[in-house]
Design a binder for these strands. Sequence first.
DNA 1: CGGTATCCTGTATGATACTG
DNA 2: CAGTATCATACAGGATACCG
Lengths: 130, 130
Amino acid sequence: MRKEASTNARNEADILRNCGMAYTLSVIGGRWKPTILFTLLNNGRMRYNELRRSINGISERMLVAQLRELEEDGLVKRIIYPEVPPRVEYELTPAGISTEPMLMCMSDWGNHQRIQKERLVDTSREISVS
Amino acid sequence: MRKEASTNARNEADILRNCGMAYTLSVIGGRWKPTILFTLLNNGRMRYNELRRSINGISERMLVAQLRELEEDGLVKRIIYPEVPPRVEYELTPAGISTEPMLMCMSDWGNHQRIQKERLVDTSREISVS
DNA sequence: CGGTATCCTGTATGATACTG
DNA sequence: CAGTATCATACAGGATACCG
């Protein structure tokens, strides 16, 4: 932990951390991907409309786009049945399943922080009253 | 893990997970915040320009904006010294420090996935050659 | 059923010049 | 030194209509 001029020379470990983080955010960042992954983690293989109904507020356009990106990144497998009417199912790959601990870690941190912030607000309110 | 019509009724735990995740992404998502947090985790208290030089490619505008948001979310403390020329230092709060395990988890997952993908590409290349 | 195509808005991000 | 102000662009996300 040096504080001199050499601070501007980023070390290797630092750069690696940022690359990994950038990749992670590119894969699971955004408004919908975590929800999609959670939904598939909970329900297993699901059809397109089943997913759409499970995820409140998502448009068809976004669901398809996010699923295609997740597929491209190797987290989701798309299974097409050559039937009429068409049937397509989505399922997590092993890589998709491997996100579970990370997703839990992130949601737990978020919930914990929100509770902490509410406590702080309550405390400051009590102080300003008394 | 039911697959009937009742799938569209999201359960409580599911909703909570998504709220926590949404909060986490709103706080540490985006292109710069993880890097800022990593930098402060490694270097401790830092001045504005020291931070700017350490984070390659960030504009003054973005650095200030992200720091203000991190401050508002309680992860960063802004310390102003009433001097001429002005001096401002930034430091992680306990909440900011508490992100470390989560950030590590995310960057590790990202790095691990990138390596796995490279391996897959190599393997498919070998197969297509032989 | 499982999508595409098209158009549109808002936010994130960036470049540059200026200031107390 | 530590920012602001201004302008510009890219991309995420949304609404709606249509298609094989």
